[in-house]
Each structure stands twice: as structure tokens, then as C-alpha cells.
């Protein structure tokens, strides 16, 4: 039901405007006009029109069970096809192991306590690297996006660092930080930093000038202007930057673990390659797919919420 319009004709109701406190009376007859109901009527029409555009019932594609069910069809088909090709013997098991072999390899690793450990350590690296990298990206992105001086000062250097392919850092990181956690997390930090930095800086540069000016006209400046106008305006871009950063974090994790590690999913990959354990390679790839998709889905939920609230 459209809310009732309250454009009032009463001079009484209009007193107290512009700071005069209620209870003061306006001169007799002040503000008595005709044509009271005109805006009310047009508004109701406007609102109805607006409401008519939205479908009343929820569409099928908006229902959770439908979305999850439909999304699961293709993976099920793929697994079935995989099972079929292996049981028909189209590929040798040393090239493509059967789903059962991969499953058993997983059970075997789990029993030895390695599966949980590998998954945990890899996830931990990704999360720490992601949080630190995204935080730094947010900070530098804000600095470069808001201040012309910092833009001129930082942007060329950061752009050049960004141009360095990720793997080029590995020898240096190992030399400096040894094969400890620091070297791997640093690489992931680098990976997570740039998507956030770039999207935040770009988005801040393109915040609607008119909105910023309106904010300033109503007395906002500095931190308050940033918190009330600029930041909310870029939140949708920031969140999509975070999503990209998370994907990058997984990418850089595998790069780091492939090259120098004794634990983790990347280590499982490289170790299985040297042992010829193709079932474990499959397992590692599937684990990466599931973990990556899972963390991305979590950020995706956050993104939808942010877009509803801020866009």
C-alpha cells in the first residue's frame, strides 16, 4: 500500500520550520493555500507505477533450492563421465585415476592426518596473506585515490612492482626469508594487494564529484567526508576488488607452495608429481577447486549484502 502523502495545508503544522521550536505560532492565515492534494495524487501515481514494475511472486531463478540444484547438475555429470571413462578403460589409470582411487587417496591421507594438516596450513596462509594484502591495498588505494600528491608519488612505483610477474619474487623471497611461512605469506600478500589497491584507487578517483561537493556543502570534510560519502560510494567496487584478491591469493599460494614448502596443497601437488601419484594430484586439484569456490562464495554473500546496502 502506498504510504499516505501528508502535504498539509495547515499553517499550524508548518510552524517551527527553520529551527523555530514547535509551539510558536505563525501569524494568522500564514501559509493557507489551495491545491492541497495535487502532489499527493501525483505521488501516489508515481509510486504505483514504480511498484507495478516489480513482479509479485519470486521467480524460479531466485529460489535457493533451484539455484543450488541447477548448479550441481554439471559437476555430477562430469564425475559420472569421469567414472565412465575410467571404468571403460579409455585412459590408463596412470594417466587418469578413477574417482574411487582419488577418494581412497584422500581417505588414506586423512587417516595419516596429512589431509587436514595440508588443507589447514594452505587455508591459513591464504587467509593471513589475503587479510594483510587487502588491508594494505585498501590503505594505499585510499591514499592514491584521494590525494593527487600521493597519486603522483606512489602510483608509478606501485605500477612497476605490479608489473613484475609473481614468480619472479620467489627466489628473492626465499633468499631473504628462507623457506619459512614468511616467504609464502609475503608472496600471497603481494598477490592480494594489487587487485584491492587498483580497484579502490580507481573507484575513489571516480566518485561522483557532485555527491562529494554536496557533502562538502553540508559541512563534511576530511575523515567525515571520507566515511560518509567517499567510502560508501566505493564499497561495491571494494568488495569486488576483495573477491579478485582472494582468487589471486589462492593462485599465489600454489605458486609459493610448489616452489618451496614441506606442507600444504601445493606441496601435495609437487610431491605427488615426483612420486608419480596421479590420484593425489587429482585430489589436490579438486581440493583447490572446492576451497577456492567455498571462500569465494563467502565473499560473494558479503558482496550481495554490500551491494544491497550501499549501491
Amino acid at each position: 500500500m502506498p504510504p499516505r502523502d501528508k502535504l498539509t495545508n495547515s499553517g499550524q503544522e508548518r510552524r517551527g520550520l527553520l529551527g523555530a521550536s514547535p509551539g510558536q505560532s505563525v501569524g494568522p492565515g500564514a501559509g493557507v493555500r489551495s491545491r492541497v492534494d495535487v502532489p499527493a495524487a501525483t505521488e501516489r501515481a508515481e509510486h504505483l507505477e514504480d511498484g507495478a514494475k516489480r513482479p509479485v511472486g519470486r521467480r524460479l531463478s531466485a529460489r535457493a533450492w533451484y539455484v543450488i540444484g541447477s548448479g550441481a547438475i554439471l559437476p555430477i555429470i562430469l564425475v559420472a563421465a569421469w567414472q565412465l571413462t575410467t571404468s571403460l578403460g579409455i585412459f590408463s589409470v596412470s594417466q587418469v585415476p578413477s574417482p574411487e582411487m582419488v577418494w581412497l587417496a584422500g581417505i588414506d591421507l586423512a587417516k595419516r592426518g596429512l589431509l587436514g594438516q595440508y588443507v589447514a596450513i594452505s587455508t591459513q596462509r591464504v587467509l593471513i596473506g589475503f587479510v594483510v594484502g587487502a588491508g594494505l591495498g585498501l590503505g594505499f588505494g585510499a591514499l592514491v585515490g584521494l590525494s593527487r600528491a600521493s597519486d603522483i608519488f606512489f602510483a608509478p612505483t606501485l605500477g612497476a612492482i605490479r608489473a613484475v610477474p609473481s614468480l619472479a619474487w620467489v627466489p628473492l623471497l626465499i633468499l631473504w626469508l628462507k623457506i619459512g611461512e614468511e616467504s609464502k605469506i609475503t608472496l600471497i600478500v603481494i598477490g592480494a594487494f594489487f587487485p584491492v589497491y587498483t580497484t579502490v584507487a580507481t573507484a575513489l578517483r571516480h566518485v561522483d564529484r557532485q555527491l562529494v561537493e554536496a557533502g562538502r556543502a553540508f559541512g563534511l570534510k576530511g575523515v567525515k567526508l571520507f566515511a560518509l560519502v567517499q567510502l560508501p560510494a566505493v564499497i561495491p567496487s571494494v568488495v569486488s576488488g576483495l573477491r579478485l584478491a582472494l582468487a589471486q591469493a589462492w593462485l599465489f599460494l600454489v605458486a609459493a607452495e610448489l616452489i618451496a614448502s614441506s606442507m600444504g596443497i601445493g606441496f601435495l601437488l609437487i610431491d605427488s608429481q615426483s612420486n608419480g601419484r596421479v590420484d593425489r594430484i587429482f585430489l589436490a586439484i579438486i581440493l583447490l577447486a572446492i576451497l577456492g569456490k567455498l571462500t569465494d562464495a563467502i565473499v560473494g554473500v558479503f558482496e550481495r549484502w554490500a551491494n544491497r546496502k550501499w549501491a
Binding site: 520550520l17 527553520l18 529551527g19 501559509g31 495535487v38
Partner: peptide, 15 residues
């Protein structure tokens, strides 16, 4: 528009 013009005048009378 006419309504809002009158309203502005009311506002101006009140303050």
C-alpha cells in the same frame, strides 16, 4: 511545481 512554490513562500513567512 506550483505547490512547492507556495510552500517555499510559507517557509519564508515562517522563517
Amino acid at each position: 511545481k506550483l505547490k512547492m512554490q507556495d510552500l517555499l513562500l510559507d517557509v519564508h513567512v515562517a522563517a
